[in-house]
Design a protein around this nucleic acid. Structure first.
Lengths: 146, 146
DNA sequence: TGGGACCATATGGGCGTCAATGGGAGAAGC
DNA sequence: GCTTCTCCCATTGACGCCCATATGGTCCCA
């Protein structure tokens, strides 16, 4: 398994640390990622995290559209200006900084959400709501999988 | 037999495990599936399960459209964030996690329902109702084959 | 044809391992 | 010197692996 899948909720301890789920750490290890690259998601109130190659991916995306568009400008602000490198401690935990808290609304618990080539940090309730909305939207569009 | 057929109800034990029906396990074995991919169904209050190729299918679908579109984003939230890889123990049982319970209403028993290329986990009563409704709907449309 | 041995599946529980969490102490920075 | 950040160790609770038991069905043989 070489991608980020499923979701799990972990508690922030008194020092402001939270364990990254072991399944996600395994993916990072396999990819040889030692430092996480984090930034604010464009769509959801979540912080996205992954290897440094994520940056490349978003720069490609920006290059694909009109470089002077509002979207490209805002993306650059988030990707370049809002990006942070985060290190894990020997137990696989990361510090939940104000950068993360302010944007996501996270306070005591973090929901880690796999997104294939990266994963996200969500406030648990916010994730539940977003997922419910997504499911509702799919149902209405009638895009059944079978 | 290379597809999932019929249905069966098994009990969840004190540890929260339930045996996957042997007929289904045989199909999985033949297909060489060692890890199940499970996700909350888009239509029914059931959890669908099958081989990893189910996920591949979803990812192809996402790749087909604009990867940064709203639809693709929401789908990833369901397929990646809402999907789980589940391993069977040596006896062919799986853990019934809250992820499954909350969405399906399953508490003490699980009804396994074959769906051809995958199968589903239902709360027994809910399955009985859904099946009755489906039968009724077909009858009214006059599409019965018998 | 009826009874019994045999087999497969479903189920129950013990136990070791690992992940998540909590706290302490040393190191580095203000 | 005090705060903040790491690293290290301890605890606990969950999960995976193993073996044991039960239950129902099938096949063989008398």
């Amino acid at each position: 398994m070489n991608r980020f899948l499923s979701h799990a909720t972990n508690r922030i301890d008194a020092k402001g640390r939270v364990s990254v789920p072991s399944a996600f750490r395994a993916v990072l290890l396999e990819a040889g990622v030692r430092e996480l690259y984090c930034f604010q998601d464009f769509v959801f109130p979540a912080v996205s995290a992954g290897g440094p190659e994520l940056l490349d991916r978003f720069e490609k995306q920006m290059a694909a559209e009109d470089p002077f568009s509002d979207a490209a400008n805002q993306m650059s602000l988030l990707v370049h200006g809002g990006g942070v490198f985060v290190k894990l401690d020997p137990e696989g935990r990361l510090m939940v900084t104000d950068f993360i808290r302010d944007f996501t609304g996270i306070s005591t618990d973090v929901t880690f959400v796999g997104r294939g080539d990266h994963f996200q940090l969500w406030e648990p309730q916010a994730f539940a709501r977003a997922q419910a909305e997504a499911r509702e939207g799919r149902k209405q569009r009638g895009l059944r999988s079978e």
